[in-house]
Measured scan of single mutants.
Amino acid sequence: RGFLEKAAVKKMAKAIMADPNKADEVYKKWADKGYTLTQMSNFLKSKTAGKYDRVYNGYVIHLD
């Protein structure tokens, strides 16, 4: 289950990176699912340092 969630989160993160207008909708879905910042950090780990920082930081702001 965790692997599928991670894959889904990364897919949506890539969608945000391609079209930032989708961010609020995606952040709301993640918040509704109760994803914590720790979970998001783990889901968005990448071999490329900083690749998903913008998405993660946007989610931090959304939760605030």
Score class of each variant (00 low, 15 high):
V55Y: 02
G50N: 08
F3T: 12
E25N: 06
M40N: 00
T38I: 14
K14W: 08
F3P: 15
K14N: 11
V26E: 03
L44M: 02
V9S: 01
L44T: 00
A7M: 15
D24E: 12
D19C: 15
A15D: 09
G58N: 04
K47N: 13
A7L: 15
G34W: 03
I16S: 02
A23H: 05
K45G: 07
R1I: 15
Y56G: 02
D53R: 05
A15C: 14
D53N: 07
E25V: 09
T48K: 10
E5P: 05
L44W: 01
T38V: 12
H62I: 03
K22S: 07
K47Q: 09
K51V: 13
K11H: 08
E25H: 08
M17W: 04
V60T: 06
L63N: 02
Y59G: 00
N21T: 13
K45D: 06
V55K: 02
K28G: 06
K14Y: 07
F43T: 03
W30K: 00
D24Y: 11
K22A: 08
A8C: 15
I16K: 01
L4D: 06
K28E: 07
M12Q: 15
Y27S: 00
W30S: 00
I16A: 08
G34L: 04
D32A: 12
K14H: 08
V55N: 00
Y56R: 02
K51P: 05
M40F: 01
V26A: 08
K47F: 09
D19R: 04
Y35V: 04
A31N: 05
W30F: 03
R1S: 15
G50P: 04
V60G: 09
E5R: 09
G34E: 04
H62L: 04
A8G: 13
V9R: 01
A15V: 09
D32S: 11
D19Q: 07
L44G: 00
A8M: 13
S41I: 07
D64S: 14
K45A: 10
N21R: 12
H62T: 03
D53Y: 06
D32T: 09
L63E: 02
H62Y: 15
G34N: 05
K47G: 14
R1D: 15
T48V: 14
K11I: 10
F43C: 06
D24N: 12
P20S: 08
T36L: 03
Y27H: 01
N21P: 06
V55W: 01
G50S: 08
G58M: 04
P20A: 07
A23D: 02
L37Q: 06
R1Q: 15
W30L: 02
Y52W: 07
F43S: 03
T48L: 07
K45N: 10
T36I: 02
D32P: 01
M12P: 01
R54L: 11
G58E: 04
D53S: 07
D64P: 04
K22P: 01
M12K: 04
A15G: 06
E5H: 10
N42C: 15
T36V: 03
N42E: 14
G34R: 06
D24Q: 12
T38A: 13
D53G: 04
L63M: 06
Y59E: 00
L37C: 06
R54M: 11
G2M: 08
G2Q: 10
R54V: 09
H62V: 04
M40I: 13
A18N: 08
E5Q: 08
N57Q: 14
K14L: 10
S46M: 05
G2D: 15
M17H: 03
L63Y: 04
V55M: 02
K28C: 07
Q39G: 02
K33I: 10
A7P: 04
A7R: 14
T48C: 13
A31W: 08
N57A: 13
A31G: 04
V60N: 05
K10I: 15
A8N: 09
R1N: 15
K29T: 13
A18H: 11
V60Q: 12
D64I: 14
Y59C: 01
G34Y: 03
W30I: 00
S46T: 08
E25I: 10
D64N: 14
Y27D: 00
L44C: 02
I16Q: 02
A13Y: 03
P20Q: 07
T36N: 06
Y52N: 02
S46E: 06
K11T: 07
K45F: 09
S46C: 13
K28N: 06
Q39P: 01
Q39N: 04
K6T: 11
D19L: 04
F43K: 01
L37I: 10
I61K: 13
S46R: 05
A23C: 11
Y27C: 02
A18E: 15
Q39F: 04
H62M: 06
K45R: 11
D32H: 10
M40Y: 01
Y59A: 02
A8L: 12
D19M: 06
K11P: 01
V9N: 03
N42K: 13
A7F: 12
Y56N: 01
N57F: 11
Y27P: 00
R1Y: 13
G2F: 15
V9T: 03
Y35G: 01
Y35Q: 00
K6W: 09
F3W: 15
T36S: 09
A18R: 13
F43A: 06
A7G: 07
V60L: 09
W30N: 00
K22D: 04
Y59N: 00
K22R: 10
A15Q: 14
S46N: 05
T38G: 11
T36W: 03
G34H: 05
D24G: 11
L44H: 00
G2S: 08
P20N: 06
N21V: 07
E25W: 07
K33L: 12
E5D: 09
A23S: 08
V9H: 01
T36M: 03
I16Y: 02
K33C: 14
L44K: 01
V26H: 03
K6I: 14
A13M: 02
E25A: 11
E25M: 10
K11S: 08
N21L: 12
T36R: 02
F3K: 15
K14S: 09
D19V: 04
K47H: 11
K29P: 00
M17N: 05
D53W: 07
P20K: 04
L4T: 10
K29W: 09
Y59F: 06
G2H: 15
F3Y: 15
M40V: 14
K10L: 15
A7Q: 14
R54N: 14
K22N: 06
N42R: 13
K14A: 11
F3R: 15
Y35E: 00
K28T: 08
A15M: 11
K29H: 14
A15R: 10
K28F: 04
K29Y: 13
P20F: 07
Y35W: 05
K33Q: 11
R54P: 10
A8R: 14
Y59M: 01
L4K: 14
Q39E: 09
I61N: 15
Y27M: 03
H62N: 01
T38E: 12
K28M: 07
R1W: 07
S41T: 13
K29Q: 12
G50E: 06
